[in-house]
């Protein structure tokens, strides 16, 4: 079963499999929409619109893409399916930022703070991430700053054991900012390379909880001036347009500078990241494509878009 299946073989296969539904949904429909037609007419444009919207790409982004397509069609009415695919691929690529996997050299440990609403998969992502860094030979310390949700600390503790990294924790209900302070001090003292902070899931419209997050973030600078170097927002691929509001509010509270998109191995299409990447100019850094410890991949824009088309 998922979690115990530590070393899954073919990463690419997983991604393709996960994205297959996306492909079927968007491009299957589009192919059908334009099949047997030598030109793109109103009706085909409507079908493309439907295909994009049902993939959670969103009304605004869809209209943006359709607008570009209309311009293109106005210039040249005789566009075929292959050209259409290329055109859409290019347009979607343009909307997305390039991801990155390297951790820049910093003075002391590189601190990643992981945030997001409830149930998106923050803790699981952290477990997988810790495993990747460990594999790269880095010394990793986890900070269990979700002191609110029942058994959240235990969950992270199991992950720390499983991948063999250190963890700093306090009792449930203790001040998360204080956990972060401890974690950073301990990591600094022990010469760790990477610190990953787990925070409690919170709905982005709860102002006090968002203020708490700002406080957690600010406390880190007291130990390491530039920390956190990376604030990573975890998004659930099955989330609809609300993800945009999540990105807005979390960015406001913590200056999010990277995204992780989870649960892409389900039927969810993940189209919402296209709009978010575009609107906030934040790169998707990782994608989750399974429950295994290895099922976290560095996001590659070209691969992602290619997987949609090939």
């Amino acid at each position: 079963m998922g979690i115990f299946n530590f070393f899954s073989k073919d990463k690419k296969e997983k991604l393709d499999k996960g994205l297959e539904k996306t492909k079927e949904n968007v491009f299957g429909k589009i192919s059908r929409a334009v099949a047997g037609k030598s030109t793109i007419d109103e009706l085909a444009l409507d079908d493309i619109e439907e295909a994009l919207i049902t993939s959670d790409i969103g009304v605004e982004t869809t209209l943006k893409i359709i607008g570009k397509l209309e311009e293109r069609v106005a210039k040249n009415k005789y566009i075929n399916t292959a050209e259409l695919n290329d055109f859409l691929k290019a347009e979607i690529s343009l909307l997305m930022k390039e991801g990155y996997d390297e951790i820049p050299k910093v003075d002391g440990p590189y601190v990643i703070m992981v945030v997001g609403v409830n149930g998106v998969g923050k803790t699981t992502t952290i477990g997988k991430l810790a495993h990747q860094f460990k594999q790269q030979g880095k010394k990793v310390v986890l900070g269990a700053a979700d002191t609110f949700r029942a058994a959240a600390v235990d969950q992270l503790l199991i992950w720390a054991d499983r991948v063999g990294v250190e963890i700093v924790k306090q009792d449930m209900g203790s001040d998360p900012a204080s956990v972060c302070f401890d974690t950073l001090q301990s990591a600094k003292a022990s010469g760790a390379d990477v610190v990953i902070i787990d925070t409690a899931g919170r709905l982005h419209n709860k102002i006090n909880l968002m203020n708490e997050l700002t406080k957690i973030k600010n406390v880190m600078a007291k130990v390491i001036l530039e920390a956190p170097h990376d604030v990573m927002l975890v998004l659930d691929a099955s989330t609809g347009q609300n993800a945009i509001e999540q990105a807005t509010q979390f960015t406001k509270a913590t200056e999010v500078n990277s995204l992780a998109l989870t649960k892409l191995d389900g039927t969810a299409k993940g189209g919402v990241v296209i709009g978010i990447s575009d609107q906030f100019q934040i790169p998707v850094r990782y994608i989750g494509v399974g429950e295994g410890v290895e099922d976290l991949q560095v996001f590659n824009k070209n691969e992602f878009v290619d997987s949609l088309f090939n």
Partner: peptide
């Protein structure tokens, strides 16, 4: 089901 679910809600509920 999560109230924030997007277009996929239909597929998942059906399945």
């Amino acid at each position: 089901v999560d109230a924030m679910t997007g277009q996929d809600a239909v597929n998942t509920a059906k399945a």
